[in-house]
Nucleic acid binder design. Structure first.
Lengths: 345, 345
DNA sequence: AGAAAAAGTGGTTGCGCAAACGTTTTTGTA
DNA sequence: TACAAAAACGTTTGCGCAACCACTTTTTCT
């Protein structure tokens, strides 16, 4: 069979508990003994059985990430990959493993989470979305499992979460266009039931009001986080008698649709229409022309989420930590917004 | 503490082993007993402790995925996300969990894999790359751990792997351009030490030879899997006295650089230059103009890899399974290649 | 010098489960 | 009716480890 702690103990002429102490870097072990045991471990090719350790220590040193079911949506891929990169990097640095799970339905998700957490396979969970009335959040909260939400929950504002200040971010993006002299600014939004859509809309409206600029219903379009939404929005916008000279777009992928629409209609970016969007995914930089985008620090979002979760696991029951983490945003200006409209008298 | 198999047994008036049998759907249990035990489980909120199960059954029902260190490269993100989606989906369907791990260096990777496999935390591993003289492959092979390689190994051609027929795929892509009447076809390749670059180059050359078309050294450029490579290649190609009328490009991201380069130089795609590339990432569809791309079934690649690995875990030591899995490819034709050059006399 | 504290180590138990092996009850067959 | 075989369930052990309690030896303090 495989080498156990007993084999090492026997060979090194010490007791199993001493070997265990060496493993956990217990200070009450002399340098020599420690070294001798380590040598034997090396010699026998010993590797601690993580399962046995978990069973007795009641901690697994691993966390799980729950992917939302519509992992098919493209924009999400890049977003999530970046998030997961941050999560995995931080977790590994803290000595934690990361388990990826995805459910087909919300019910399946709960079953998976239940199996993993109640079955003591993981110590905590990261949720990558903020749906309305999320059952998984409710389940985790009711069972007092450590978890962190990337996004925010309206129902439970006090849970551990990592998010951006999307209102401020949208405000800043809109301000950028205003400072370039734009007076007619439109907004292409995402699904209205997503908190992020509403937050960004709010920031956009606030900036307009503050600058005393005109708000118009027809300059706001709601859609999905998909390219088509941006594409369709263009045939609408460009047929208006008084159309905007600049747009705030809720997501880079939507912007790509906007660009495509404008291209087919024969308009030029940024001369005919300036664009600022959100997330700063790779496609924002790679599109033609490159799109100005609000970088929301996706990697940082994941990194911080992982950090907060592990911290709350390790210091469970102790003092309370910061519940809500806000990741800073930063506007990356590119060609798509580098144009000032001609002044009107 | 938490509810154990014993608690359930006591409450249901049966022995712990009966409960265990119910858990594993052992047929030697009467309907009534089974149902009674299940009811008690439900009542007490029992959930089997996965660690204890793993410890005694010597299987974890989970696999790990090793991310390569340069997870920073952008093109890879979408590629990997897609791969991981396939892996996780299939694994979950088979009742397996997926653990994501990434090492900073090759040595760190080996340590991580060693810890996970020797520590019995996972039953097998999936490697997402095919480096030359990969130490991780060697380690896994030497220790006889179940693993599957996405790609192929030149050193160990007999290991379990999932790959495309990249030679044939490149041949098909080139044939497509030839059938449109192109006679001067260039190739933008990736790093020459990557097996995939070499395979695709080979297919390209074969197609040219078969069609009796001219091959020229200066119509082939090698670079990285990065946008810049494509960008730089253009200033080179377009300054040639006799430049190609069509290009085969090794990856979609590189194609994006090609498009950018041509745009800045004032050339039109496909009129001045036709393009066919590989991988069919989302950016191929979303770019301006959309790029014809060889779909290599990335999701399928991951799905199959997971399937093959789990199969080999579950039937270890039994009959041999298919070692090498080839995922079919399919050319998706878009605007970038829809142009036939004017016939020369 | 003697007591107390500290350092260094060992023996044993039990985490929660599956599997090996045993026992009892039921069913089928001659 | 006998009696074997199958069905249904029970008892016990041990997976590999950490934690608890105990013990001895050394050091420090008064």
């Amino acid at each position: 069979m495989s080498v156990t702690i007993k084999d090492v103990a026997k060979k090194a002429g010490v007791s199993p508990s001493t070997v265990s102490r060496v493993l956990s870097n217990n200070t009450r072990i002399s340098r020599e003994t420690s070294q001798r045991v380590r040598d034997v471990m090396e010699e026998l090719g010993y590797h601690p059985n993580i399962m046995a350790k978990s069973l007795v220590s009641r901690t697994t040193e691993s966390i799980c990430v729950i992917l939302p079911k519509p992992a098919e949506e493209l924009f999400l891929n890049m977003f999530f990959m970046e998030l997961i990169r941050g999560i995995v990097t931080q977790a590994n640095r803290s000595g934690y493993d990361v388990l990826i799970s995805s459910g087909g339905s919300e019910q399946e998700e709960i079953e998976a989470v239940s199996r993993l957490l109640k079955g003591k396979r993981v110590d905590g969970a990261i949720l990558l979305y903020s749906r309305k009335d999320d059952q998984v959040v409710e389940f985790l909260k009711n069972n007092q499992f450590p978890f962190v939400l990337v996004g925010r929950s309206e129902k439970f504002p006090d849970i551990l979460s990592v998010d951006n200040d999307n209102v401020q971010a949208a405000y800043d993006a809109t301000k950028h266009l205003i400072s370039l002299g734009h007076q007619r600014i439109g907004f292409v939004s995402g699904p209205p039931n997503h908190i992020v859509s509403r937050d960004r809309m709010k920031g956009y409206v606030t900036a307009l009001e503050e600058a005393g600029l005109e708000k118009r219903k027809e300059w706001i379009v709601e859609g999905e986080f998909l390219q088509e939404s941006g594409y369709r929005a263009m045939s609408f916008f460009m047929n208006l008698p008084e159309r905007p000279t600049a747009l705030v777009v809720v997501d880079d992928l939507v912007s790509l649709g906007v660009l495509r629409g404008l291209y087919e209609l024969g308009y030029k970016v940024p001369e005919d229409l300036c664009i600022v969007s959100f997330n700063n995914l790779s496609i924002a930089e790679l599109s033609t022309p490159p799109v100005s985008s609000m970088d929301i620090g996706i990697y940082n979002l994941g990194y911080t989420a992982s950090q907060a979760l592990i911290q709350s696991i390790q210091h469970e029951g102790e003092r309370q930590f910061q519940k809500r983490h806000i990741i800073p945003h930063r506007l990356v200006i590119r060609e798509s917004s580098l144009y000032s409209p001609p002044k009107k008298p």
